[in-house]
Design a protein around this nucleic acid. Sequence first.
DNA 1: CGGGGCCTTGACGGATGTCAATCGCGGTGG
DNA 2: CCACCGCGATTGACATCCGTCAAGGCCCCG
Lengths: 223, 223
Amino acid sequence: MGQILPIQASAPVWGAASVLDMGIRTLRAQDPLIFEGDDADHLYEVVEGVVRVYKVFYDGRRQIISFAFPGDIIGLGQTDTYSFDCDALTFARVRAIPKADLLRTVRERPELGAQMLEMASREITAAQSLSITLCRKSAIERVASFLCGLAERRRHTAAGQTLSVPMTRADIADYLGLTIETVSRNITKLKSLQVISLPEPGAIVIHDMKQLKRIGDCEAGIQ
Amino acid sequence: MGQILPIQASAPVWGAASVLDMGIRTLRAQDPLIFEGDDADHLYEVVEGVVRVYKVFYDGRRQIISFAFPGDIIGLGQTDTYSFDCDALTFARVRAIPKADLLRTVRERPELGAQMLEMASREITAAQSLSITLCRKSAIERVASFLCGLAERRRHTAAGQTLSVPMTRADIADYLGLTIETVSRNITKLKSLQVISLPEPGAIVIHDMKQLKRIGDCEAGIQ
DNA sequence: CGGGGCCTTGACGGATGTCAATCGCGGTGG
DNA sequence: CCACCGCGATTGACATCCGTCAAGGCCCCG
């Protein structure tokens, strides 16, 4: 069985840890971090583990907006109250950054403001590319691009490495706008194409990254 | 025939018109403003008219990312080069804001930085809600929420007002991730439900805003 | 009058959702 | 020890929504 790399801690993004490192919160899997409607008075930087950000609709439909990995910031797009729920997917540690402190710090160090803008930019780009994924791609293309993205963010781009997939099929489905069954069917299809394999639950091995990318980018004639 | 309100000019968003009002560009319908890959050295604030922002894929598929109305800023999420194309949907005037000037100004007036962050926030929220629209909603729900959003942004929330819809069915389809035919069918369905009517091409009247909202928010049992 | 957009409407097929059965695995308790 | 249960994943059968293809209408304009 392959060694699955842990989801590691990262250096503080803001550089100004001494000023902003107000508090680290430790979360067990499933522990809530943010409820929709809470006052949006903190940003959270994921230090370790994986955190999921999602919206739940009156009828139980759920849209996962993002899986946040170490180094990611949650709450940049929130002004008054949070517009989403957020909880831990795995054991996780997050750094809580009070917005008031942050704004004061930005006043003293304008370059931090530029950095925040840049991160907001990236978030806009991510959200827009998610839109494209969701509306222009077929089910297998979505699954393939999801796995590609996962591997890239964890820098597991070499073939044959075991990639931990801490989310359930339901999480993936709610992220990709599909059902559990469709996700499962298409993972099976990728397996039968010998692009990936599933050595154990919660892990996958990407055997043919190029082909996976081709499928994810709609460049392969898969039906 | 109802009088359709023009899409009006707005006061400069930045307040600092004397500093930033570097140039107004006038565009006829269909005139290009930004090509994907151009150096992202300007922001554009729409002053009058409607501008569309979109991506075109290798296979001709097009995703409209946003319709920008007066007061909207284009290019906030762009760091190096633009990642989208952009052109005028109607006659339009835009204020070109050189980024270099803007950064200098922000250094002198940090509150502008906060304002930019807030606009970026709004853009993130918009992109995320577009994701949800695209992946969680049925065709009629998408069309209804599109029309609701249009009415809200133009502040035509009273029933019976005539709302100008300057975009074609193809534009709406490429924004909502649908086909022309599906958009048309569902507009017809909303008409037969007596929620809207089409007094003339390029205009709609919303008769039952509450019901339209219910449908757009997935709160109505429509098949 | 004819042509070309743009829109609407109909018929049909296919991808994906829904419903249901089954499997494997881990935990629990008799 | 093993039967039982619950949860997640897989697989199959069927239904349905939406895309595709095609025809036709409306309107403007030459």
